[in-house]
Design a protein around this nucleic acid. Sequence first.
DNA 1: TCAAGAACAGACAGGTCTGTCTATTTTTCT
DNA 2: AGAAAAATAGACAGACCTGTCTGTTCTTGA
Lengths: 197, 197
Amino acid sequence: MPDASPSPARKSPKRELLLDTAFKLFYERGFHAVGIDTILAESGVAKMTLYNHFKSKDELIVAALEKRAAEILDHRTATIQEAGDAPLAKIAAIFDAYHQWFHSEGFNGCAFIRAIGEYPDETSPINQSVKRQKQILIDTFAQIATELKAKSPQLLAQQLYLLAEGAIIRAHTFQDPDSALAAKQAALDLAQSTPQT
Amino acid sequence: MPDASPSPARKSPKRELLLDTAFKLFYERGFHAVGIDTILAESGVAKMTLYNHFKSKDELIVAALEKRAAEILDHRTATIQEAGDAPLAKIAAIFDAYHQWFHSEGFNGCAFIRAIGEYPDETSPINQSVKRQKQILIDTFAQIATELKAKSPQLLAQQLYLLAEGAIIRAHTFQDPDSALAAKQAALDLAQSTPQT
DNA sequence: TCAAGAACAGACAGGTCTGTCTATTTTTCT
DNA sequence: AGAAAAATAGACAGACCTGTCTGTTCTTGA
């Protein structure tokens, strides 16, 4: 009866420590570039503890990404919540949050996009996990675009998403944390030029 | 007098073959994921030949990226040339070219962005090479924005760039080759709403 | 207190990686 | 034809990688 499968405790301190350490290192240096041993040394956890919690490195990567994704989603939800009811204010708030992120210590682009880059195989669980996470952002934009009564909410949502991803890429590539400003302005231009009732 | 440094023949068939094969494999599977031996097997070239042309794997990566960058630049220059003199037509032509690219066999995102993702260290020659290449695209947009007499050509250029990168990311992440359409429309919207003389 | 589960250190296997070396063959140019 | 340059196969070193295994110690809860 004792299930030997590697998820005995859904939430253990060691497990959380491993996930946070792994994410930090992967984000800093890349997924292939960081070995298991580095994560273990940095976190001070034993190898068998890791393999008791996760079947493989890939599973660790997925879990680390999903933990981070949950945190990001919470943060974004709060950001939108605080922006009030006006759709344009919500859009502005989202891009302001990007602005803050780009200015934060250790910003290194989008871990999820980088994960897709390193695991381009569509059947990889890593790849699929990223897709799910990104879809949530698009859905958020679509919700706002609908509230805006845009002529084509789907199109506007997609365009806002393009601007967001583009801003991340530019901030990362050129180490310019102000990339969100141009994106925000373009986003508001596009959103505002939409025919409203 | 014979310089033993690893660049004896600037242009040799084997060298070009190695660069093309390397790029293809890196683009398909990622930089860390593809080993030297795989490139050698695929190209049918001996290991010492590779190391006679390139000091290291990193140098091979840089050379492969730069060869590809030159080809892309040529293609883009021709695309703009064929679009005629109207700035808006040039912008449309660039995004149409993205559209074609996204629909082409083997599209797998932007190799340069993925390279930054795998080599985030700013001092890496790989990282720096990508930055140079991307700057050329931004400069191209800036040139067109200036021709357009945009109020702020730099801002518009940056926004067009964000849309372009965003479209690539979206096409790659969601395997949706039509991502360029929304980007093109947004680009033309932004460019057109610019106050002209 | 004491038993069971969790985490520990560390060795280990088996594979892969980059880069070097040698000795031989092929190509190229004059 | 003959010399110089280029490419070849393949072994090799040394490092690193993931994942397994063992036996010990720590933690925790009844």
